[in-house]
């Protein structure tokens, strides 16, 4: 039997703007198996990022249960969530979110820095990742000196350095041209083949095709395609 890495049941989330309540997620049920590559699609404002924030433990649902890697996580403290994020989840963002004053190598090592036990071997491992992603000549470059595709590859290396079980990507190709987008998706495909579970948000059907499974969210709830 394949293990379920992510189990969401009846997840809801409401935002309040002043006195106006806006229910963004209206009962999300989702199961993701280990080794799966899932794409979540939907129009702008449908709640994709909100859902990904909850899956990534960056936000808490109002109601519902969330079991990540066999552990109920919806009631954990901020500190415990930070710990789990650091150990189990890698993030890739549309806007890359690299630290502008740090080199490619330093950016990759950042998650280990906050773990507080950066070792010499880690640097070696980061270099290996960067090399595998074709960035061996750019390890000391600042983000501003890198192209969008290169920046996203640095971000992928940063997401992988902690050996996460789950990779979350929100529009990873949203800021990239089609050539770089293809490259990034090939990397994702490759990582998935090696066993990494990936949940990716996109509204580009071409990009979604790289995933094994596609789910469509509409007004805060999954719909059948």
């Amino acid at each position: 039997m394949v293990k379920k890495l992510v189990i969401l049941k009846g997840i809801t989330k409401t935002y309040y703007t002043g006195r106006i309540a806006y229910q963004v997620l209206r009962g999300i049920d989702l199961e993701v198996e280990e080794g799966e590559f899932l794409a979540i699609m939907g129009v702008s404002g449908s709640g994709k990022s909100t859902l990904l924030n909850i899956i990534g433990l960056l936000d808490k649902p109002d109601y519902g249960t969330y079991i990540l890697d066999g552990q109920e996580v919806s009631k954990l403290s901020k500190k415990e969530l930070a710990y789990i994020r650091n150990r189990k989840i890698g993030f890739v963002f549309q806007a890359f979110h690299l630290v502008p004053w740090a080199t490619a190598l330093e950016n990759v090592l950042m998650p280990l820095l906050y773990r507080g036990n950066l070792k010499k071997e880690d640097e070696e491992r980061a270099l290996q990742f960067l090399t595998r992603l074709g960035l061996e000549k750019r390890i000391n470059a600042k983000p501003s000196e890198l192209s969008g595709g290169e920046q996203q590859r640095v971000a992928i290396a940063r997401a992988l350095i902690t050996k996460p079980k789950l990779l979350l990507a929100d529009e990873p190709t949203g800021n990239l041209d089609s050539k770089s987008s293809q490259e990034v998706m090939k990397i994702f495909k490759e990582l998935n083949k090696n066993g990494l579970t990936i949940i990716m948000v996109t509204h580009d059907p071409e990009i979604a095709k790289f995933a094994q499974r596609i789910k469509i969210i509409k007004d805060g709830i999954f719909v059948e395609e």
Binding site: K79, A82, V99, M110, Y114, T162
Partner: peptide, 15 residues
């Protein structure tokens, strides 16, 4: 955004 990133990557409040 950078502080948010640090927190997302696992930095504790104390850190």
């Amino acid at each position: 955004p950078i502080i948010a990133l640090r927190i997302a990557l696992g930095a504790s409040s104390k850190k």
